[in-house]
């Protein structure tokens, strides 16, 4: 564990800024940073202005918001469950959210309400997973390993439900749904950015407010109770806020796995441990990681794009395996 230093924040912010500039500049049509700047100050040709302001900038901002949400959701779930392998995707939260979002799409609900239905799906998935873990554990104890397994099973069940939902729709819809299930910020609009921004702001503010309580929860349920924390209520609160954040990203950008797993480990590698600092660190690292992954997805085989969720999974799975080895 290295010592946390103040300049880490500056480096992190600079790297994030640089990745964002690259994210706006690079693509099928590459622009220079000066052209990007000109477009932002509206001294640019209409085509460049349109590429920057209506295509790439909302895409980069959306990717950053997704990263903030998944990073903060991941660190909260890991701390609350005292499990370095916890994250919304593996716990079935994202799967549940996907069922909600697919159902919303098929019912023709306005896209601003997709996060709410995704949240309902995520909430049901969380409660199911907790219920299974509680049922299996000793009275008053939640076995985190069982919870992780329950999450995986709930996720598989969610996948099955999505397949059933999609069984009778047109091939076009399936193509769209498939692309979306692999995660993408390609269709970002300022409208999507605006509503995801609202959900992320609310969710992160809530987690920041309750961060000291989550710090105490990392000691385990009995010790947390001894320090005056209502363990069940605090766990539920942390779970629902994390689920809301994960659900909102699923509704906006589809299933993007492993970001919530990888990001908190990177933040801890920078010496962070207090939950408020972790939230700030995970927000910056998460945003950087998703913007960079999206950039990678665009530039590897232009003009085609790789699915964003596939890129994060390719980066995240080896990381997960390394962590799993370390746990033994």
């Amino acid at each position: 564990m290295i010592v946390h230093r103040a300049w880490h924040w500056w480096i992190g912010t600079l790297v994030f800024g640089a990745v964002c500039v690259l994210g706006v500049a690079l693509g099928t049509v590459s622009l220079s940073p000066m052209q990007v700047l000109a477009a932002l100050t509206s001294h640019a040709p209409a085509a460049v202005h349109s590429i920057v302001v209506t295509l790439r900038l909302p895409r980069v901002v959306l990717a950053a918001l997704v990263g903030v949400a998944l990073g903060t959701s991941g660190t909260t779930l890991q701390a609350t469950l005292r499990n370095p392998l916890a994250e919304p995707y593996l716990l079935g939260v994202s799967g549940g959210a996907a069922v909600g979002a697919v159902a919303a799409m098929m019912l023709g609900v306005s896209s601003a309400l997709w996060p709410l239905l995704a949240f309902v799906g995520a909430g049901v998935a969380v409660l199911l997973a907790i219920g299974v873990a509680r049922g299996a554990g000793r009275s008053g104890h939640t076995d985190v390993r069982v919870l992780l397994m329950a999450g995986v099973v709930v996720g598989a069940f969610a996948n099955a439900l999505i397949m059933i939902l999609l069984a009778n729709v047109s091939p076009n819809t399936i193509r769209g749904a498939l692309w979306w299930m692999m995660g993408s910020v390609a269709d970002a609009t300022w409208y999507t950015v605006a509503w995801l921004g609202l959900y992320v702001a609310a969710g992160v503010a809530y987690l920041v407010a309750y961060a000291p309580e989550i710090d105490v929860l990392t000691l385990g349920e009995d010790s947390a109770a001894g320090l005056g924390v209502d363990v069940h209520r605090a766990t539920r609160r942390a779970f629902l806020a994390s689920a809301l954040l994960a659900a909102a990203t699923v509704a906006a950008a589809g299933l993007i796995g492993f970001v919530g797993l990888v990001v908190p480990h990177m933040a801890r590698a920078f010496g962070l441990s207090r939950q408020r600092a972790m939230l700030a660190g995970c927000a910056i690292i998460g945003a950087t990681l998703v913007v960079a992954s999206d950039l990678l997805a665009r530039v590897v085989i232009p003009p085609s794009e790789l699915p964003l969720g596939a890129v994060t999974a390719v980066l995240g799975v080896p990381f997960f395996l390394i962590q799993l080895r370390r746990m033994r």
Binding site: Q78, R82, N83, T218, L219, G220, D222, S223, G226, S273
Partner: peptide, 14 residues
């Protein structure tokens, strides 16, 4: 104040 029998040490702190 209570020092419980076991405590979780998953995440290290200063």
């Amino acid at each position: 104040a209570v020092v419980t029998q076991r405590e979780d040490t998953t995440f290290a702190r200063n």
